[in-house]
Amino acid sequence: MRRINYSRLQQADLALLAMQIAASKGGSVMTSDLKELLVQKFKPTGMDAATNANWQMNFEQVVGNLISNRGMPNSMFNKGYATRIVGGFELTALGQTFVESAPH
């Protein structure tokens, strides 16, 4: 069984922030832009900054998984907050409302 390292950022920690970024960009964001913006914000260190087998930072992989793991029960996609677009995601009306009502 895989153990979760709670000292590192997880997908669920980044979902609202990703949706807030999409909202600030007119309702959609490309995965590559999202990775870049979140790396600038969090400045990953340690294991988050380590390069994985896909030749990207572990942190970037977590950000990418927000979109690629859209089938997960609690994902922003399954909750109806976002839909997949080529290269990223866009907020639905429900997602926009959720972002506007979330604490900043």
Rank of each mutant, 00 (worst) to 15 (best):
G26K: 01
M72C: 11
P73L: 03
D13T: 08
P73A: 09
D48I: 00
M30Y: 12
T92R: 08
T31A: 12
H104A: 13
D33T: 05
D13M: 10
T45L: 14
M47F: 07
T97M: 11
N5F: 03
S32E: 11
T83Q: 08
D33F: 03
D33H: 05
D13H: 09
L16E: 13
V62Q: 00
S7K: 01
L38F: 03
L34R: 02
L34P: 11
R8W: 04
M57R: 08
F77H: 07
G26E: 13
I4S: 08
N65G: 15
M1V: 11
L17W: 06
Y6R: 01
E60F: 02
G95V: 07
R3E: 15
P73M: 04
A18P: 14
A53K: 03
K79M: 09
D13A: 13
F59T: 02
V99Y: 06
A49L: 01
M30I: 09
Q20N: 13
N54I: 02
G80V: 02
L37H: 01
T83C: 12
R3T: 14
M72H: 12
G87I: 03
P73W: 01
R84H: 14
F98V: 04
R84P: 14
F42L: 04
N52P: 12
A15W: 05
Q11D: 15
V39H: 05
P73E: 12
I67Y: 01
K25H: 14
L14S: 00
M19D: 15
Q56Y: 11
V63C: 09
K41N: 11
E36V: 05
T92L: 13
V29G: 11
I21L: 10
L34Y: 05
G95R: 03
Q96G: 15
G26L: 06
N74D: 14
Y6C: 08
R84N: 12
K43M: 15
G71K: 03
G80A: 02
Q10V: 07
Q56W: 06
G26P: 13
A53Q: 04
S101N: 09
S28K: 10
V86D: 15
L38E: 00
I85P: 13
V63I: 07
A50W: 00
S7R: 00
S28L: 11
V62T: 13
M57N: 02
R2D: 15
M72V: 11
S75C: 12
E100R: 02
S32D: 14
F89H: 08
L9E: 06
D33E: 15
L94T: 13
A102M: 06
A49Q: 01
M57Y: 01
F98C: 06
G27K: 00
